[in-house]
Structures are given as structure tokens and as C-alpha cells.
Amino acid sequence: MSAETQTLFSPGLAARFDRMVTLYPQRRSALVPMLLYAQDEMGALNDAVIAEVASRVGISELEVRNVISYYSMLHTKPRGKYHVQVCTNISCMLRGGNELFARCKEKLKIENRETTPDGLFSLEEVECIGACSWAPAVQVNYDFHENLTPESLDALLDQYRTQNGLADRGGR
């Protein structure tokens, strides 16, 4: 299959996908990274994205869905602009991970796997993110924030909120 002529993705990402499928002995190998990058750009793996990805790697949409539903970072519904992932696994738990998670719920006024009405934040309790020796830790999108306290977490969330406001103003 040659490069998609009609694509949902930005030219840069589409070009990257065109190349990705050639990097492996089998096209299908590009599937998981492609889904993750597509999700980063599109916000979620909706039906249209699934259809294009299926066509790019040469498998059925069902097979793509089978794969998406296996990986916990892949999702078909949009999340907040800042996806706050609080680790409560053992090392973080021992150093206040549960308290951080509770603080997030309180501060963002949402429960686990929910999104704030303004779409800015979503919250997820996650498994070990590899920050055990710097626990407790939170990942916001792909950024690690470690050795947190409830207070420093508050400041962090405020910073994201402010950043967004600034970015939005700047963008207009």
C-alpha cells in the first residue's frame, strides 16, 4: 500500500507515518507507535483515525480496535488537554501517592477517568510510571513531576491552568 493520499493527519505526521511503515520488516509493526502519535495529534482514536490507521498498516479495523483496547495509554474518547496521571503503586503509595490522588480529585472536582467541564484536565490513577525512587510522582501528558507534596501538586496544577490561559491568549 502506498502513502495515503487522503489523510486526517497533519502533513508532518502523515509523512512520518508514510515512512514508519517502511522501517520495519512488516508494516503492521508500526501500529502501536502510529496509534500513540495519532492520538497525540488528534486527541483520541476515533473511528476515522482507526480506519486510516487500519488502511495504513494493512489490517482490518477490528484488529486495530483489538490492539487499542489492549494498551492502557490508548483511548477512543477525548481526554482533557492536560491528562493528569497519578501513580499510586507501591513506591508512590508509601510516600503519599494516594493523598496526591485525593488532592487532585478535590482540586479538579472530578473523579478518576473524568474530565473537567472546561476540557482542561482529566484525571487518571495509573500504575507504576518508573519514578519509584522519586516518589510520589505524577505525569501530566508525557511530563514527569516527582517528589511531590499536596502543596507542590496544587502549584503544579495551577501552573498548567495558567500556562493554558497564557497560551490561549497568546494564540488569539
Binding site: 503503586n89 507501591i90 513506591s91 500504575e127 507504576c128 518508573g130 519514578a131 519509584c132 525512587s133 522519586w134
Partner: peptide
Amino acid sequence: ESEPGTCKDR
């Protein structure tokens, strides 16, 4: 690297 308690490969 995913085993809880492990953060060396990072």
C-alpha cells in the same frame, strides 16, 4: 521498564 519499584532504565 514497568515492574513497580523499578526506575533504573530511565
